[in-house]
Design a protein around this nucleic acid. Structure first.
Lengths: 226, 226
DNA sequence: GTCTATAGCCGGATAGAC
DNA sequence: GTCTATCCGGCTATAGAC
Protein backbone atom coordinates (compact mmCIF):
# COMPACT_ATOMS: atom_id res chain seq x y z
CA UNK A 1 0.00 0.00 0.00
CA UNK A 2 1.36 3.39 -1.05
CA UNK A 3 0.20 6.78 0.21
CA UNK A 4 -1.09 7.89 -3.19
CA UNK A 5 -3.35 4.79 -3.38
CA UNK A 6 -4.60 5.35 0.15
CA UNK A 7 -5.32 8.99 -0.52
CA UNK A 8 -7.26 8.29 -3.70
CA UNK A 9 -9.45 5.70 -2.05
CA UNK A 10 -10.34 8.08 0.74
CA UNK A 11 -12.13 11.37 0.42
CA UNK A 12 -14.06 13.57 2.74
CA UNK A 13 -12.93 12.28 6.12
CA UNK A 14 -13.85 15.54 7.79
CA UNK A 15 -17.22 15.62 6.07
CA UNK A 16 -17.92 12.12 7.37
CA UNK A 17 -16.96 13.11 10.91
CA UNK A 18 -19.12 16.23 10.76
CA UNK A 19 -22.09 14.26 9.48
CA UNK A 20 -21.69 11.95 12.48
CA UNK A 21 -21.53 14.95 14.77
CA UNK A 22 -24.72 16.34 13.26
CA UNK A 23 -26.52 13.04 13.82
CA UNK A 24 -25.25 12.31 17.31
CA UNK A 25 -25.27 15.83 18.75
CA UNK A 26 -28.63 17.06 17.44
CA UNK A 27 -29.58 18.22 20.96
CA UNK A 28 -26.78 20.79 21.07
CA UNK A 29 -27.11 21.81 17.39
CA UNK A 30 -29.95 24.25 16.76
CA UNK A 31 -29.77 24.02 12.97
CA UNK A 32 -32.07 21.45 11.40
CA UNK A 33 -31.15 21.36 7.68
CA UNK A 34 -28.51 18.65 7.31
CA UNK A 35 -26.79 20.07 4.24
CA UNK A 36 -26.31 23.51 5.75
CA UNK A 37 -25.38 22.19 9.17
CA UNK A 38 -22.71 19.82 7.86
CA UNK A 39 -21.22 22.55 5.68
CA UNK A 40 -20.96 24.92 8.62
CA UNK A 41 -19.73 22.21 10.99
CA UNK A 42 -16.89 21.44 8.59
CA UNK A 43 -16.06 25.12 8.39
CA UNK A 44 -16.06 25.41 12.20
CA UNK A 45 -14.12 22.23 12.98
CA UNK A 46 -11.51 22.83 10.30
CA UNK A 47 -11.01 26.35 11.61
CA UNK A 48 -10.90 25.24 15.25
CA UNK A 49 -8.28 22.61 14.47
CA UNK A 50 -6.21 25.03 12.45
CA UNK A 51 -6.22 27.65 15.21
CA UNK A 52 -5.61 25.05 17.93
CA UNK A 53 -2.60 23.71 16.13
CA UNK A 54 -1.23 27.24 15.86
CA UNK A 55 -1.78 28.50 19.39
CA UNK A 56 -3.40 25.70 21.41
CA UNK A 57 -7.09 25.25 22.11
CA UNK A 58 -7.17 27.30 25.32
CA UNK A 59 -5.41 30.24 23.67
CA UNK A 60 -7.81 30.16 20.72
CA UNK A 61 -10.61 32.63 21.45
CA UNK A 62 -14.07 32.31 19.99
CA UNK A 63 -13.45 35.66 18.34
CA UNK A 64 -10.49 34.07 16.55
CA UNK A 65 -12.89 31.36 15.46
CA UNK A 66 -15.39 33.95 14.16
CA UNK A 67 -12.68 35.57 12.07
CA UNK A 68 -11.44 32.24 10.68
CA UNK A 69 -14.89 30.87 9.83
CA UNK A 70 -16.53 34.14 8.78
CA UNK A 71 -19.40 33.37 11.16
CA UNK A 72 -20.62 35.51 14.04
CA UNK A 73 -20.57 34.61 17.73
CA UNK A 74 -24.29 33.97 17.67
CA UNK A 75 -23.99 31.64 14.69
CA UNK A 76 -21.16 29.67 16.30
CA UNK A 77 -23.26 29.05 19.38
CA UNK A 78 -25.92 27.46 17.19
CA UNK A 79 -23.45 24.64 16.49
CA UNK A 80 -22.14 23.89 19.99
CA UNK A 81 -23.14 24.81 23.51
CA UNK A 82 -19.84 25.82 25.16
CA UNK A 83 -16.23 26.09 24.12
CA UNK A 84 -15.41 23.02 26.16
CA UNK A 85 -18.18 21.14 24.37
CA UNK A 86 -16.34 21.86 21.12
CA UNK A 87 -13.15 20.39 22.58
CA UNK A 88 -14.89 17.23 23.75
CA UNK A 89 -16.66 16.65 20.45
CA UNK A 90 -13.43 16.92 18.46
CA UNK A 91 -11.74 14.48 20.82
CA UNK A 92 -14.52 11.89 20.97
CA UNK A 93 -15.77 11.94 17.39
CA UNK A 94 -12.28 12.17 15.94
CA UNK A 95 -10.81 9.32 17.95
CA UNK A 96 -13.81 7.13 17.24
CA UNK A 97 -13.62 7.76 13.52
CA UNK A 98 -9.89 7.15 13.27
CA UNK A 99 -10.11 3.98 15.35
CA UNK A 100 -12.71 2.69 12.90
CA UNK A 101 -10.57 3.36 9.83
CA UNK A 102 -7.52 1.74 11.44
CA UNK A 103 -9.40 -1.46 12.25
CA UNK A 104 -10.96 -1.66 8.80
CA UNK A 105 -7.59 -1.53 7.04
CA UNK A 106 -5.81 -3.90 9.38
CA UNK A 107 -8.49 -6.56 9.02
CA UNK A 108 -7.92 -6.60 5.27
CA UNK A 109 -4.51 -8.20 5.91
CA UNK A 110 -4.32 -11.73 7.26
CA UNK A 111 -0.74 -12.65 8.21
CA UNK A 112 0.74 -10.96 11.31
CA UNK A 113 3.61 -9.45 9.32
CA UNK A 114 1.18 -7.92 6.85
CA UNK A 115 -1.08 -6.66 9.61
CA UNK A 116 1.82 -4.94 11.33
CA UNK A 117 2.82 -3.19 8.13
CA UNK A 118 -0.76 -2.23 7.38
CA UNK A 119 -1.24 -0.81 10.89
CA UNK A 120 1.91 1.29 10.63
CA UNK A 121 1.04 2.57 7.17
CA UNK A 122 -2.58 3.39 7.84
CA UNK A 123 -1.65 5.31 11.00
CA UNK A 124 1.04 7.31 9.22
CA UNK A 125 -1.14 7.93 6.16
CA UNK A 126 -4.10 9.08 8.22
CA UNK A 127 -1.92 11.46 10.20
CA UNK A 128 -0.57 12.77 6.89
CA UNK A 129 -4.07 13.50 5.60
CA UNK A 130 -5.49 15.03 8.79
CA UNK A 131 -2.49 16.05 10.92
CA UNK A 132 -4.33 18.69 12.93
CA UNK A 133 -6.63 16.04 14.38
CA UNK A 134 -3.74 13.91 15.56
CA UNK A 135 -1.89 16.90 16.96
CA UNK A 136 -5.05 17.97 18.74
CA UNK A 137 -5.54 14.57 20.41
CA UNK A 138 -1.96 14.55 21.56
CA UNK A 139 -1.63 18.13 22.74
CA UNK A 140 -5.01 18.72 24.34
CA UNK A 141 -5.71 15.39 26.07
CA UNK A 142 -3.29 16.32 28.84
CA UNK A 143 -5.33 19.37 29.81
CA UNK A 144 -8.82 17.92 29.63
CA UNK A 145 -11.05 17.35 32.63
CA UNK A 146 -10.66 13.91 34.18
CA UNK A 147 -13.74 12.35 32.53
CA UNK A 148 -12.63 13.34 29.03
CA UNK A 149 -9.02 12.48 29.77
CA UNK A 150 -10.11 8.94 30.54
CA UNK A 151 -11.59 8.64 27.05
CA UNK A 152 -8.37 9.92 25.49
CA UNK A 153 -6.32 7.42 27.48
CA UNK A 154 -8.68 4.64 26.43
CA UNK A 155 -8.09 5.55 22.78
CA UNK A 156 -4.32 5.57 23.22
CA UNK A 157 -4.47 2.16 24.88
CA UNK A 158 -6.83 0.81 22.21
CA UNK A 159 -4.28 1.67 19.51
CA UNK A 160 -1.60 0.05 21.59
CA UNK A 161 -3.76 -3.04 22.00
CA UNK A 162 -4.04 -3.36 18.22
CA UNK A 163 -0.26 -3.62 18.09
CA UNK A 164 -0.11 -5.99 21.06
CA UNK A 165 -2.56 -8.34 19.33
CA UNK A 166 -0.60 -8.30 16.09
CA UNK A 167 2.72 -8.93 17.84
CA UNK A 168 1.30 -11.79 19.89
CA UNK A 169 -0.19 -13.36 16.79
CA UNK A 170 3.24 -13.11 15.17
CA UNK A 171 4.84 -14.76 18.20
CA UNK A 172 2.35 -17.62 18.04
CA UNK A 173 2.93 -18.08 14.32
CA UNK A 174 6.68 -17.93 15.06
CA UNK A 175 7.33 -15.19 12.53
CA UNK A 176 8.32 -12.94 15.46
CA UNK A 177 10.18 -13.83 18.63
CA UNK A 178 9.48 -10.93 20.95
CA UNK A 179 10.30 -11.12 24.65
CA UNK A 180 8.26 -8.20 25.91
CA UNK A 181 5.27 -7.66 23.64
CA UNK A 182 3.72 -4.85 25.70
CA UNK A 183 6.88 -2.78 25.82
CA UNK A 184 7.51 -3.35 22.12
CA UNK A 185 3.97 -2.27 21.25
CA UNK A 186 4.23 0.76 23.46
CA UNK A 187 7.38 2.08 21.79
CA UNK A 188 5.93 1.68 18.30
CA UNK A 189 3.40 4.43 19.00
CA UNK A 190 5.93 7.25 19.59
CA UNK A 191 7.63 6.32 16.31
CA UNK A 192 4.32 6.88 14.53
CA UNK A 193 3.59 10.05 16.46
CA UNK A 194 6.91 11.62 15.57
CA UNK A 195 5.69 11.91 11.99
CA UNK A 196 3.08 14.51 12.86
CA UNK A 197 4.57 15.98 16.04
CA UNK A 198 7.88 16.89 14.31
CA UNK A 199 6.50 17.42 10.85
CA UNK A 200 8.67 20.53 10.39
CA UNK A 201 11.78 18.34 10.58
CA UNK A 202 10.73 15.81 7.99
CA UNK A 203 9.37 18.52 5.71
CA UNK A 204 12.62 20.45 5.79
CA UNK A 205 14.54 17.25 4.98
CA UNK A 206 12.14 16.51 2.13
CA UNK A 207 11.21 13.10 3.50
CA UNK A 208 7.84 11.97 2.12
CA UNK A 209 5.50 9.86 4.20
CA UNK A 210 6.20 6.72 2.17
CA UNK A 211 9.93 6.99 2.87
CA UNK A 212 9.21 7.48 6.56
CA UNK A 213 6.89 4.46 6.57
CA UNK A 214 9.48 2.29 4.82
CA UNK A 215 12.15 3.31 7.30
CA UNK A 216 9.99 2.74 10.37
CA UNK A 217 8.85 -0.66 9.13
CA UNK A 218 12.35 -1.97 8.54
CA UNK A 219 13.55 -0.36 11.78
CA UNK A 220 10.86 -2.06 13.83
CA UNK A 221 11.16 -5.38 12.01
CA UNK A 222 14.84 -5.59 12.96
CA UNK A 223 13.80 -5.74 16.60
CA UNK A 224 11.19 -8.47 16.27
CA UNK A 225 13.57 -11.41 16.15
CA UNK A 226 16.30 -12.49 18.52
CA UNK B 1 25.24 3.81 35.27
CA UNK B 2 22.07 3.28 37.30
CA UNK B 3 19.45 5.88 38.13
CA UNK B 4 20.12 5.77 41.86
CA UNK B 5 23.81 6.58 41.25
CA UNK B 6 22.94 9.39 38.90
CA UNK B 7 20.44 10.85 41.32
CA UNK B 8 22.85 10.79 44.25
CA UNK B 9 25.59 12.53 42.32
CA UNK B 10 23.23 15.30 41.31
CA UNK B 11 21.41 17.70 43.58
CA UNK B 12 19.85 21.08 43.16
CA UNK B 13 19.44 21.27 39.41
CA UNK B 14 16.69 23.83 39.74
CA UNK B 15 18.73 25.92 42.18
CA UNK B 16 21.59 25.95 39.71
CA UNK B 17 19.31 27.05 36.88
CA UNK B 18 17.78 29.80 39.03
CA UNK B 19 21.22 31.04 40.08
CA UNK B 20 22.10 31.32 36.38
CA UNK B 21 18.87 33.19 35.75
CA UNK B 22 19.67 35.62 38.58
CA UNK B 23 23.12 36.31 37.12
CA UNK B 24 22.14 36.59 33.48
CA UNK B 25 18.82 38.39 33.84
CA UNK B 26 19.77 41.01 36.44
CA UNK B 27 18.27 43.76 34.25
CA UNK B 28 14.76 42.31 34.54
CA UNK B 29 15.09 41.26 38.19
CA UNK B 30 14.61 44.12 40.64
CA UNK B 31 15.78 42.16 43.70
CA UNK B 32 19.45 42.53 44.52
CA UNK B 33 20.13 40.07 47.37
CA UNK B 34 21.23 36.84 45.71
CA UNK B 35 20.08 34.48 48.46
CA UNK B 36 16.57 35.86 48.60
CA UNK B 37 16.28 36.23 44.86
CA UNK B 38 17.34 32.64 44.14
CA UNK B 39 14.97 31.31 46.79
CA UNK B 40 12.02 33.18 45.28
CA UNK B 41 13.03 32.36 41.72
CA UNK B 42 13.00 28.65 42.59
CA UNK B 43 9.58 29.08 44.16
CA UNK B 44 8.28 30.89 41.07
CA UNK B 45 9.78 28.60 38.44
CA UNK B 46 8.78 25.42 40.22
CA UNK B 47 5.24 26.72 40.55
CA UNK B 48 5.10 27.93 36.95
CA UNK B 49 6.25 24.53 35.68
CA UNK B 50 3.80 22.68 37.89
CA UNK B 51 0.86 24.79 36.72
CA UNK B 52 1.99 24.67 33.09
CA UNK B 53 2.16 20.91 33.16
CA UNK B 54 -1.36 20.80 34.58
CA UNK B 55 -3.12 23.27 32.29
CA UNK B 56 -0.58 24.62 29.81
CA UNK B 57 1.34 27.86 30.06
CA UNK B 58 -1.21 30.04 28.29
CA UNK B 59 -4.04 28.78 30.50
CA UNK B 60 -2.00 29.44 33.63
CA UNK B 61 -2.93 32.91 34.92
CA UNK B 62 -0.58 35.02 36.98
CA UNK B 63 -3.21 34.88 39.70
CA UNK B 64 -2.83 31.09 39.67
CA UNK B 65 0.88 31.67 40.07
CA UNK B 66 0.28 34.01 43.04
CA UNK B 67 -1.78 31.34 44.76
CA UNK B 68 0.80 28.62 44.10
CA UNK B 69 3.82 30.65 45.19
CA UNK B 70 2.17 32.60 48.01
CA UNK B 71 3.53 35.81 46.47
CA UNK B 72 1.53 38.84 45.32
CA UNK B 73 1.23 40.14 41.77
CA UNK B 74 3.56 43.00 42.64
CA UNK B 75 6.17 40.64 44.02
CA UNK B 76 6.02 38.38 40.97
CA UNK B 77 6.67 41.31 38.69
CA UNK B 78 9.89 42.01 40.57
CA UNK B 79 11.25 38.74 39.19
CA UNK B 80 10.26 38.98 35.52
CA UNK B 81 8.99 41.71 33.24
CA UNK B 82 6.12 40.04 31.35
CA UNK B 83 4.45 36.65 31.34
CA UNK B 84 6.04 35.90 28.00
CA UNK B 85 9.43 36.78 29.47
CA UNK B 86 8.87 34.01 32.02
CA UNK B 87 8.17 31.55 29.21
CA UNK B 88 11.28 32.48 27.29
CA UNK B 89 13.53 32.28 30.33
CA UNK B 90 12.34 28.77 31.21
CA UNK B 91 12.90 27.66 27.65
CA UNK B 92 16.32 29.19 27.15
CA UNK B 93 17.91 28.63 30.54
CA UNK B 94 16.46 25.15 30.87
CA UNK B 95 17.56 23.92 27.47
CA UNK B 96 21.01 25.39 27.92
CA UNK B 97 21.45 23.74 31.31
CA UNK B 98 20.24 20.33 30.16
CA UNK B 99 22.38 20.43 27.05
CA UNK B 100 25.40 21.08 29.27
CA UNK B 101 24.69 18.11 31.54
CA UNK B 102 24.14 15.79 28.56
CA UNK B 103 27.46 16.71 26.97
CA UNK B 104 29.35 16.35 30.24
CA UNK B 105 28.13 12.78 30.82
CA UNK B 106 28.59 11.61 27.24
CA UNK B 107 32.17 12.83 27.10
CA UNK B 108 33.02 10.65 30.07
CA UNK B 109 32.53 7.59 27.84
CA UNK B 110 34.98 6.90 25.03
CA UNK B 111 33.77 4.07 22.81
CA UNK B 112 30.78 4.77 20.54
CA UNK B 113 28.71 1.98 22.09
CA UNK B 114 29.31 3.37 25.57
CA UNK B 115 28.55 6.92 24.45
CA UNK B 116 25.24 5.83 22.95
CA UNK B 117 24.23 4.09 26.16
CA UNK B 118 25.34 7.04 28.26
CA UNK B 119 23.41 9.49 26.09
CA UNK B 120 20.24 7.43 26.34
CA UNK B 121 20.57 6.99 30.09
CA UNK B 122 21.42 10.58 30.94
CA UNK B 123 18.49 11.85 28.88
CA UNK B 124 16.05 9.46 30.54
CA UNK B 125 17.44 10.08 34.01
CA UNK B 126 17.31 13.85 33.64
CA UNK B 127 13.73 13.69 32.43
CA UNK B 128 12.95 11.49 35.43
CA UNK B 129 14.37 14.05 37.85
CA UNK B 130 12.87 17.16 36.25
CA UNK B 131 9.99 15.97 34.07
CA UNK B 132 8.09 19.26 34.10
CA UNK B 133 10.98 20.98 32.32
CA UNK B 134 11.04 18.43 29.53
CA UNK B 135 7.27 18.48 29.17
CA UNK B 136 7.39 22.26 29.05
CA UNK B 137 9.97 22.33 26.24
CA UNK B 138 7.95 19.86 24.25
CA UNK B 139 4.49 21.28 24.78
CA UNK B 140 5.15 25.01 24.66
CA UNK B 141 7.76 25.28 21.88
CA UNK B 142 5.04 24.83 19.27
CA UNK B 143 3.22 27.96 20.42
CA UNK B 144 6.14 30.32 20.90
CA UNK B 145 6.83 33.33 18.74
CA UNK B 146 9.08 32.63 15.77
CA UNK B 147 12.29 33.91 17.33
CA UNK B 148 11.93 31.72 20.43
CA UNK B 149 10.73 28.79 18.38
CA UNK B 150 13.96 28.91 16.44
CA UNK B 151 15.91 28.47 19.68
CA UNK B 152 13.74 25.49 20.65
CA UNK B 153 14.27 23.88 17.26
CA UNK B 154 18.01 24.49 17.56
CA UNK B 155 18.00 22.63 20.88
CA UNK B 156 16.09 19.70 19.44
CA UNK B 157 18.50 19.48 16.54
CA UNK B 158 21.50 19.79 18.85
CA UNK B 159 20.35 16.72 20.80
CA UNK B 160 19.82 14.91 17.53
CA UNK B 161 23.29 15.91 16.41
CA UNK B 162 24.77 14.32 19.52
CA UNK B 163 23.22 11.03 18.44
CA UNK B 164 24.27 11.49 14.81
CA UNK B 165 27.87 11.99 15.89
CA UNK B 166 27.84 8.91 18.09
CA UNK B 167 26.28 6.75 15.38
CA UNK B 168 28.75 7.95 12.75
CA UNK B 169 31.65 7.27 15.08
CA UNK B 170 30.25 3.76 15.56
CA UNK B 171 30.00 3.27 11.81
CA UNK B 172 33.62 4.35 11.34
CA UNK B 173 34.79 2.03 14.12
CA UNK B 174 32.68 -0.70 12.49
CA UNK B 175 30.80 -1.51 15.69
CA UNK B 176 27.62 -0.29 13.96
CA UNK B 177 26.58 -0.66 10.34
CA UNK B 178 23.83 1.90 9.90
CA UNK B 179 22.54 2.83 6.47
CA UNK B 180 20.72 6.04 7.32
CA UNK B 181 22.36 7.67 10.33
CA UNK B 182 20.17 10.79 10.32
CA UNK B 183 16.91 8.87 10.25
CA UNK B 184 18.14 6.50 12.93
CA UNK B 185 19.18 9.38 15.19
CA UNK B 186 15.92 11.16 14.62
CA UNK B 187 13.78 8.21 15.72
CA UNK B 188 15.81 7.69 18.91
CA UNK B 189 14.54 11.00 20.28
CA UNK B 190 10.82 10.06 20.35
CA UNK B 191 11.71 6.87 22.21
CA UNK B 192 13.33 8.99 24.91
CA UNK B 193 10.49 11.50 24.93
CA UNK B 194 7.86 8.84 25.44
CA UNK B 195 9.21 8.32 28.94
CA UNK B 196 8.05 11.72 30.13
CA UNK B 197 5.22 12.38 27.70
CA UNK B 198 3.38 9.16 28.61
CA UNK B 199 4.57 8.90 32.16
CA UNK B 200 1.08 7.88 33.34
CA UNK B 201 1.35 4.68 31.30
CA UNK B 202 4.71 3.57 32.65
CA UNK B 203 3.75 4.53 36.18
CA UNK B 204 0.57 2.47 36.06
CA UNK B 205 2.56 -0.50 34.75
CA UNK B 206 5.13 -0.02 37.50
CA UNK B 207 8.01 0.25 35.06
CA UNK B 208 10.95 2.07 36.68
CA UNK B 209 13.24 4.29 34.64
CA UNK B 210 16.09 1.77 34.73
CA UNK B 211 13.88 -0.92 33.21
CA UNK B 212 12.77 1.50 30.51
CA UNK B 213 16.38 2.47 29.80
CA UNK B 214 17.45 -1.18 29.56
CA UNK B 215 14.62 -1.94 27.15
CA UNK B 216 15.25 1.07 24.91
CA UNK B 217 18.97 0.36 24.75
CA UNK B 218 18.55 -3.24 23.65
CA UNK B 219 15.71 -2.25 21.30
CA UNK B 220 17.84 0.36 19.56
CA UNK B 221 20.97 -1.78 19.51
CA UNK B 222 19.12 -4.48 17.56
CA UNK B 223 18.71 -2.00 14.71
CA UNK B 224 22.32 -0.86 14.49
CA UNK B 225 23.65 -3.85 12.55
CA UNK B 226 22.57 -5.34 9.28
C1' DG C 1 -30.39 30.96 10.86
C1' DT C 2 -27.50 34.61 11.48
C1' DC C 3 -26.43 39.00 13.08
C1' DT C 4 -25.14 42.93 16.54
C1' DA C 5 -24.89 44.52 21.11
C1' DT C 6 -23.90 43.89 25.57
C1' DA C 7 -23.59 41.64 30.24
C1' DG C 8 -20.38 40.19 33.49
C1' DC C 9 -16.09 38.32 34.51
C1' DC C 10 -11.16 37.55 34.46
C1' DG C 11 -6.83 38.43 32.30
C1' DG C 12 -2.02 41.05 32.36
C1' DA C 13 0.08 44.87 34.01
C1' DT C 14 1.17 49.05 37.01
C1' DA C 15 1.11 52.71 40.75
C1' DG C 16 1.88 53.85 45.10
C1' DA C 17 1.44 52.62 50.17
C1' DC C 18 4.04 50.36 53.68
C1' DG D 1 10.85 43.96 48.73
C1' DT D 2 6.25 43.03 49.03
C1' DC D 3 1.53 44.23 49.23
C1' DT D 4 -3.18 46.12 47.88
C1' DA D 5 -5.93 48.56 44.76
C1' DT D 6 -7.05 49.54 40.28
C1' DC D 7 -6.97 50.18 35.10
C1' DC D 8 -8.60 48.46 30.98
C1' DG D 9 -8.89 45.24 27.38
C1' DG D 10 -10.44 40.75 25.95
C1' DC D 11 -12.88 36.70 27.28
C1' DT D 12 -17.26 33.45 27.12
C1' DA D 13 -21.89 33.51 26.74
C1' DT D 14 -26.57 35.31 25.85
C1' DA D 15 -30.60 38.30 24.40
C1' DG D 16 -33.12 40.08 21.03
C1' DA D 17 -33.37 42.31 16.22
C1' DC D 18 -33.78 40.97 11.51
Amino acid sequence: MKFSDFKNHQTGFVEEICRNIFKEKSHSIKIKKEGLAVKNLMNIYNAALKLSSEKGFSAMSLRDLCRETGLSMGALYSYFSTKEDLLNIIQEQGQQFIGGIMKKYINEADKAEEKLRAAIRVHLYLSEIMPQWFIFFFMEARYMVKSEQKKAIASELATEQIFIDILEEGNRQEVFSIDDVTMTASVIKPLLQDWYLKRWKYTSRKIPVDAYADFIIQFIEKTLRR
